[in-house]
Design a protein around this nucleic acid. Sequence first.
DNA 1: TGACTTCTGGATCAGATAATCCAGAATTAG
DNA 2: CTAATTCTGGATTATCTGATCCAGAAGTCA
Lengths: 203, 203
Amino acid sequence: MARTGRPRGFDRDEAVTQAMHLFWEHGFEGVSLEQLRRSMGDISSASFYAAFGSKEALYRTALNSYLATHGTVMSALRDQRLTPRQRIEQALRRSAEMQTDPTHPTGCMVALSSIIGSEGGASVQALTSAEREANRKAILACVDAAIADGTLRRETNPAGLATLFEGLLVGLSIQARDGVPTKDLDAGVTQALNAWDANILRS
Amino acid sequence: MARTGRPRGFDRDEAVTQAMHLFWEHGFEGVSLEQLRRSMGDISSASFYAAFGSKEALYRTALNSYLATHGTVMSALRDQRLTPRQRIEQALRRSAEMQTDPTHPTGCMVALSSIIGSEGGASVQALTSAEREANRKAILACVDAAIADGTLRRETNPAGLATLFEGLLVGLSIQARDGVPTKDLDAGVTQALNAWDANILRS
DNA sequence: TGACTTCTGGATCAGATAATCCAGAATTAG
DNA sequence: CTAATTCTGGATTATCTGATCCAGAAGTCA
């Protein structure tokens, strides 16, 4: 059943997408309310707050929208149909490609949009740091699984391998922003996998 | 010969160090003039502008101060007394240690303090992106040198190895911010070097 | 029709922002 | 001493910040 009352004069989903692009490009604190409202078709301040509540609430919504769309390149990391090595490889290669797609801002919104900020920005920064921690744990789980199933040697340093892959993962964002082309990022992933293979148990 | 006129009421070098720490921690746009002046002993606005010219000019000065102090961990990258592999290893291990030193903000100021920002912040962002590009080129030069001297195979993809090492380098900053301990970062460097060794020419 | 609900236009808010101005204080040079 | 130079305290600027308020418009429901 349709809601009662005057209908909204703009498309809320489209507006969230616009906000996502702005936050992705400039970061949470780098985007102003005026910019956001303008990107939504010059809607009024009242319309903005009626629809989204606050700038921070919109950022949460936009971040969730990112995770549900472009962010899904990371889902390979939990795909149990793949081997642990394939999970990491897919997550990295898909990230490298997505992050250099010219149809949207470069890099990853989780890695870039709120790493740093002013003194009172802890609650916003916590949103993305929680995502990064989840990724770090998922990568570590891949390494642990490969040690458990005998693919990697028991002497393998799991935290070291996880640091390497997650470090490269977030590093891709900065490199993408700096204009490093897709093929170089992908070649970096290929080289990183050599580190995995160096820990393979040989019989 | 001492300068004429009324002497400055505060220590300019100390003030620059304070500014460096603030910009390092919160980024260029995340620090306000009031915060800066307060950290310098509540100096007046007039004193601030007489001494530094503008917020952006102070940021340039603070960034140079960073490069001349903590930033010197990267000098190993150009140390011709070391082998190409040692240059990369030293730069990475020293960065990992410096970036987690609890006596100052975590991560690297070049990687964090102005990757993103509002629409008009291009000139500030260019300062750190130029530094990162220089590092990327220096890493690539190490790889090229090792191929030229026969250490690495001719088929080695130089851009791929450079992406891996520079990706990890800047990735360390985000991981350090996220609280990853020094020993894990260092173990990540150890693993990354396996990728180098996988490209060694065996006779 | 009329009651009810929801959204909008436009003015407005208090506080923060980077930056400037000026009179006077503190120093050196001659 | 006087003149020249440089810095400081304090007020002040214009602009931007995120957010709120209210009257009225535009719908649904009975």
